[in-house]
Write a protein that binds this DNA or RNA. Structure first.
Lengths: 240, 240
DNA sequence: CGTCGAATTGACTTGGTTCAATCGACGTGG
DNA sequence: CCACGTCGATTGAACCAAGTCAATTCGACG
C-alpha cells in the first residue's frame, strides 16, 4: 500500500484514521468535528462470505461503507433466474438513499467489513452538509456509468469477451495501486456461479472460457480462485 | 391531460408555465425568482428524429431538459456493435453532471424539444441551491434503478420476455396518465433496429417476437409503428 | 484417507443469429 | 396517375454459440 499524507490530527477518531473511506470515500468531505460526531454513531461490523446484508423489497434501517471485501448486488426473477447488477468494493457507499426499500439484494461476496451508519443520522447530516450529498452524488453517477458500461457487456458481447471483461474489471478494481503494470494477480472474489450471474451466462460456459484463456496463456489459474494475468494489454484486447 | 393545480403566478415565466419540467422535472424545486433567472438563459431547441445531441467522448457545453419526445443513449463497441443504455422521456434531465465528456451518445429517437441550459450556469445555480442538486440526485438514483432493472432483462431474459418487457416499459412510460387501465395504445418511438439495440437482440428476432405477440392476440400492430396492447396484465405476465 | 462442494469437461440440444428473399408503405419523377 | 426506387419490416432456412444434462476431477478439510 502506497504512502499517503495524513495529518493524524488528534481530532480524527482513531477508528477513522486508517480507513479507506476517510480518504477516498464519503467521509473525506467531512470536517474533523463532523467526523467525530459521525464516528460516535457508526459501528464496524464484520460479515462472512455469503451473509445477506439487505434483501430485495425489504426495509433497511442503515447505510454503510465497505471497508474491506466485496459486496454483490443481485436481482432475482420469480422463477429463480438471478443477475448481479453491481459489485461494491472498498471504500464504496452501500445503500439506496431516500428509499426505505432496497431494490436489490446485497450479499457479502467475500468476508466483508462494513462501517454502518443509522439511516436517519446520515440523512440529517446530509441535509446539513451539501458537500456530503455532493460526494454521494459523485458515487451515484459513477455507479450509473458503470451500470451502463456493463449493459453493453451483457447485451452485445460474446461469452469469451464477457469473461475477459470480467477479469479486466476485477484486476483494475481490486488493486488499483498497480495501475499500468502488464502483469497482475489476485484472488477472484466470486465463485464460478457468481461470475455467471454477473455475466448473464451459465457457470459451465464461464468455466470453459476461463479454460480457454488459460490454454491461450492469457491467464494462469492456481487453486480455483487465484488468477495471474500474464499480460493486461492482451486481456484487454479480448474484451471486444 | 389531467387537470393540474397551478398558481399561474405572474412571476412564472411564460415559457415555463406549460412545461412538464416545471412540475415534475428539476425546475419544480426552484423559487419563482430563480426560475425567472434561469429562464433568461435557457433556449428551447427542436431536433428532428435521428439528430445527434451529444457524442461519446465528446465535450458537451450544455445540459437540457427533455420537453417532448424520446432521446436514446447509446454506446458502441469498436466493431460497430451498439447497445442502447437508456431512454429519456419528458421531463427527464439530459447530460452527465460534473464531467465535460459524455460517456454515451445521445440521439433524438423521435422529434424532440429540448430546453437547453449552459453548463456553467446550471452548475452555479446548483452550488447555490442544494435543493436542485437534491432533485437531480433523485433522478440519477431513479436512472440507476432503471439501469439495474434493465441489466436483469439483458442478462437473464429470453427474446420473447425481452420484447414483452420493452413494450411494457414503453406503455407505462409514454403515457403514465392511463395507469391501471388494461388497454393501452401508443406509437413506438423506436425502429425495430433500435429496439434490437435496446434489447441486445437482432432486428429479425424482434420482428419475429412481435409477430408472435400479435398472433397470440396480446397486441395489435397497425402501420409498423402503432401498437395496441389488448391486455396489460397479460403482457406483464410475459415479462418473465 | 474419505467426504463434500466447487470446478471442469464432454455430448447433445436449442434459441437466436445470419443470410437471403419478399413485402408494403411512401415519395418522386416521367 | 402509375411505375419505380427506397427503406423498414417480415418471413424462411441453415447454422452456430451457448445452454442443458451428465459424468468426472479437483481441492479443502476433517
Amino acid at each position: 500500500m502506497a504512502d499517503r499524507k495524513d495529518i493524524h490530527n488528534s481530532d480524527t477518531p482513531v477508528l477513522c484514521q486508517s480507513c479507506e473511506a476517510r480518504h477516498n470515500g464519503m467521509c473525506g468531505v467531512l470536517e474533523p468535528t463532523e467526523l467525530l460526531a459521525l464516528s460516535k454513531i457508526t459501528r464496524v461490523v464484520r460479515h462472512e462470505a455469503g451473509a445477506e446484508l439487505a434483501a430485495e423489497a425489504q426495509p433497511v434501517d442503515s447505510y454503510a461503507n465497505v471497508m474491506r471485501g466485496v459486496v454483490k448486488l443481485t436481482k432475482t426473477l420469480e422463477d429463480g433466474r438471478q443477475q448481479i447488477v453491481g459489485l461494491q468494493f472498498a471504500p464504496d457507499f452501500l445503500g439506496r438513499l431516500y428509499t426505505k426499500e432496497s431494490a436489490v439484494t446485497a450479499e457479502a461476496a467475500s468476508d466483508v467489513d462494513l462501517c454502518r451508519v443509522p439511516r436517519a443520522a446520515l440523512e440529517r447530516l446530509m441535509s446539513e452538509n451539501p458537500a456530503l450529498e455532493h460526494r454521494l452524488m459523485q458515487q451515484t453517477l459513477r455507479e450509473l456509468d458503470e451500470a451502463r458500461d456493463w449493459m453493453v457487456t451483457l447485451g452485445r458481447k460474446t461469452a469469451s469477451e464477457k469473461v475477459a471483461s470480467f477479469l479486466y474489471l476485477i484486476a483494475t478494481h481490486l488493486d488499483p495501486s498497480h495501475e499500468g503494470e502488464a502483469i497482475r494477480h489476485f484472488d477472484l472474489p466470486l465463485t464460478r456461479s457468481d461470475i455467471a450471474d454477473f455475466l448473464g451466462l451459465t457457470l459451465e460456459t464461464v468455466s470453459r472460457q476461463l479454460s480457454r484463456l488459460r490454454a491461450d496463456k492469457v491467464i494462469a489459474i492456481t487453486g480455483n480462485r487465484h488468477v495471474d494475468v500474464m499480460d493486461m494489454a492482451r486481456l484487454k484486447s479480448r474484451c471486444g
